[in-house]
Simulated scan of single mutants.
Amino acid sequence: MREFFRSLGVLTEQDITALEQVSSRQTLPKGAFFVREGQVCEQIAFVEKGILRSFYTTADGEEMTYCLLFDNILITALSSLISGRPTPENIQALAQTELIIFAKKDFETLINQNVNWLMANKILLEQQYMELEQRVFSLQKDKAAERYQKLLTQQPHYIQQIPVQYLASFLGITRRHLSRLRRELMP
């Protein structure tokens, strides 16, 4: 976690220590939820190790996985965290996941007391926006094979741990299409 926050380029070691002092560790077993639809999200977590998926449920009850989350990133239900309203999303562990958790109120205290944390928050929000934009553009302009190949390149050690239905949903394709892609891309 220290390295992640150092990489933002605006925090001192003291700043990061201040966050560590208000954080705690949590293990999410496979299948457990960080946040569920309908809850107000009041926590942010750093993923030390594990795999999570963010998904929502459509009006006809289908689960749509829109994000896969891996080691060394921050997770939260951002719109709920910002607005204080119940989230429409679920964040669920796909494997045992080790988290470092800190409360929204503690993070806000750091931001209000330290301009470095204010800058770090700005950078983090900008990164989230750019990742969301890239995801939307990828879904609209890249072929499913390109999206799958990118995931294989970026997270090869996790692909086999993600259930097929979640991976297909994330890629915006059917399970059958994913099976075909896997056959075509296997050496």
Rank of each mutant, 00 (worst) to 15 (best):
L69T: 03
N112V: 07
L81F: 15
L52M: 14
E98P: 00
F102K: 02
L94Y: 13
D71N: 15
K49P: 00
F107E: 01
P88F: 05
F46K: 00
V115Q: 13
L52H: 04
I51N: 10
R36W: 01
E63L: 05
F33G: 02
E42T: 12
Y66C: 09
D60H: 11
E37C: 14
T87D: 06
V35H: 06
S83G: 11
M64A: 05
G38A: 12
S83Q: 12
S83H: 07
M119F: 06
A120F: 09
I44P: 00
Q43E: 15
A59V: 10
T97K: 10
L68V: 04
Q96Y: 04
F34I: 04
V47S: 12
W117E: 08
E62W: 01
G50F: 08
N90Q: 06
R53D: 11
L68E: 06
E108N: 14
A45K: 04
M119A: 13
I101Y: 05
F55A: 08
Q113G: 13
D71V: 03
D60N: 14
Q96H: 09
E48A: 04
Q92R: 08
Y56K: 10
Q39A: 13
I101F: 04
I91W: 03
A59W: 02
G50R: 08
G38R: 10
V115S: 15
T109D: 12
Y56N: 09
L74E: 11
R53E: 13
N112S: 15
S80V: 10
